[in-house]
Amino acid sequence: MSVSVSMTVNGKAVAAEVADETLLVTFLRDDLRLTGTHVGCDTSQCGACTIHVNGSAVKACTMLVAQADGCEIDTIEGVSDGETLHPMQQAFKDNHGLQCGFCTPGMVMSALDIVKNNPSPSEQDVREALEGNLCRCTGYTNIVRSILAGAKDMEAR
């Protein structure tokens, strides 16, 4: 069976007819070609597919497109202002918070969620709030630094 959905993705209205069982991440990657949202596991643990649904971080691999009907979706592609990086993205660059880049979109989307809920997080806050995001390259030290720096920059604006 198929289901008709409409939603806003990165500020643009999107309507589609998809099979009922279609996962949101599949729709974003394959249908909308927003391939910045990555798939790193099949047990809903790695967080590479983290996006925002109605302003809250969720794993796009663990949500049906049908469940997102009527929602506002934000993906990594919508974070920067063209080629001008968002302060959180810039903080990741300045603090070497990424290496291979695969977990990075999920990290940035989680980072923005962390700061939304806690504008001045401590290092321990950040480490605990990254429970749902795996990185194999950085050892997290610079990711944590990036998020702390990004939070400061966002607060300063």
């Binding site: 809903s44 967080g47 983290t50 649904v53 809250s56 971080a57 969720v58 794993k59 663990t62 949500m63 989680s110 969620d113 962390i114 809920n117 709030a129 429970e131 749902g132 995001n133």
Partner: peptide, 9 residues
């Protein structure tokens, strides 16, 4: 429970 993304859903 779980992680922040799990708690949001």
């Amino acid at each position: 429970i779980g992680d922040p993304m799990v708690r949001n859903r």
